[in-house]
Write a protein that binds this DNA or RNA. Sequence first.
RNA 1: GUGCCCGUAGCUCAGUUGGAUAGAGCGUCAGCUUGCGGAGCUGAAGGUCGUACGUUCGAAUCGUAUCGGGCAUACCA
Length: 560
Amino acid sequence: MDNLKEQIKGVINDLYGVDDVTVDFASVPSEIEGDYSTNVAMRLARQAGKAPRQIAEEIIEKLGNSGFGFSIAGPGFINVVVSGKSLQRQLDEVWSDDYGNNDSGKGRLAISEFPSTNIAKPYSVGHLRPGTQGWAAKKVLEANGWKVLTDNHLGDVGTPFGIWAVGFMRSGLDIEEVTVYDLGDIYIKMKADLKAEEKVGKHELADEVQEWLKKLEAKDADAVKLSKHFGEISLKHTHEVMDRLGISTDMEMGESNFVELGKKMVEKYADEGIFERNEDGSVICRLDDYGIDVPMLMLKSNGTALYATTDLGCLTYRDENIHPDKIVYAVGAEQKFYFEQLFAMAKKVGIKFDNYHLVFGTIDQISPEGKREKMSSRKGVVLMESLLDDAEKRVRENFGADVTDEDIAKIAVGAIKFSDFVADRNTGILYDPDKIFALTGQSGPFCQYACVRMRRIMEKNADFKAVGFDDYDFAAEKEVLQKLLEFPEVVAEACEDFRMHKIAGFAFELAQELNRYYEKTPISSAADSERSARLWLIKRADFVLARALDLLGIEIPEKM
RNA sequence: GUGCCCGUAGCUCAGUUGGAUAGAGCGUCAGCUUGCGGAGCUGAAGGUCGUACGUUCGAAUCGUAUCGGGCAUACCA
């Protein structure tokens, strides 16, 4: 098709002297004859001063015998008819062991930062999307030739630590017995107490929290001990959950690693006049030159670090030690403005690499009043583990005892992840168990099932000796072939904007075409050459579908 | 107040950067099973694309205004 594109461009240049027109092929509505269509004739109409249909005729005539069938339809679409056989030849030509991949990012290094959980807080569904999206970003970058490092940018400093420290002291719990769930409860209770205190105009508790924070940053022995212990139990828990989600990271460079460097850099830039010191001791960075009229607070008036401080430290560290070309931050839309500020600040201090905020919407639920709102339980958060448990329970109810626990887990995670990717990431996800754990329709299990089915067919034909199939026309395989040929473009596009729903949509459509295909086309019982041709196709379709799902972090179960 | 995101079928969402009769899934209704795995396939019903102007051969898509929802708006992350 690229070849045809160039031919059409050439013809247009010859006929009308226009050399900067882009020729795109789109699919054709199913009722109309043709496989691909382009609207160049309509786009040229004004420039050429002719009617679109006439231009279309002239282009087709000039193209002559190019091996394709053309027709003009509607207001001036040029429709191209291709044969299944020619599609099969195309696929055969471009096929390779890493079909779909490209090397556009060759020699470049990216860091994908996710899921950036908070120390001492149980893994909540709030970190589902950072994990799944960040993981997919890694996979997509790698498919486009990038080298990728992944980093869990742990929230292991800041006010929350103070909250836990104070809450823990008040709880009377034994440090050896405290669990990550206790810490979760402590946090929620403390937040409520702080809010209540603020309401009556007091700040004793809030002061106590800040005291612990200062102690930690001053490396006070008790504070460090608490912080370390909270870190250990929560990290163990985090790893267990990430393992279930099928994600992992190369590094765990938490914020605590960057407090010192961050503060140092703040001082440095303040001394150089790039940042400004306020009378109360706080430091700000003005961003008016970058179109942002809210200055960024770089250091609190009490001298402790905040998100911006450690992030500056982290940027500096990465710039000096890792030398990335790009950093992808998988963080929700609430922090969009913060990241705009952060990236502007990075530019201002001379950071050269590209920063990309991979934004996504919240996970919502319908409140008892019938309103759509951000998901939470009465206790404050919904645990990721209970979401996974619910999913596995539901999957188990629908599958026989002959499906292993491992496969059940893959199906459950497949369902959850696909729900995350099925819509544009800007859109929030509505938590509806019937949808998020769906096993039919636009769902992960639907796609997984198509793969499992193909693998079963290939297994049954394992002993079959393939014969030549030069005479086979691939007419019944046309739709599947078209889809398979789209894959490399889908992979490349996903790397541009990380809109993973295009990959999910592709996987679903391919799975659907396959279901339609073997609904009407026998394989194992076909004559030898047809059987060989069809197995040739199934093998490639399985590869592509599994690859597409792999980009989304979805695994294929053995049996389902 | 200002900035960003969203508003498309009963529900959840697509819509190829301005193109053909606006598409999927779920749900509803009607079909298809001695079958390589029916968790599937085929079909039907269901739309003032929030609203109003405008731009042009042509608008869900671009512009202006407006209504509704969400998020953000320096000492949280």
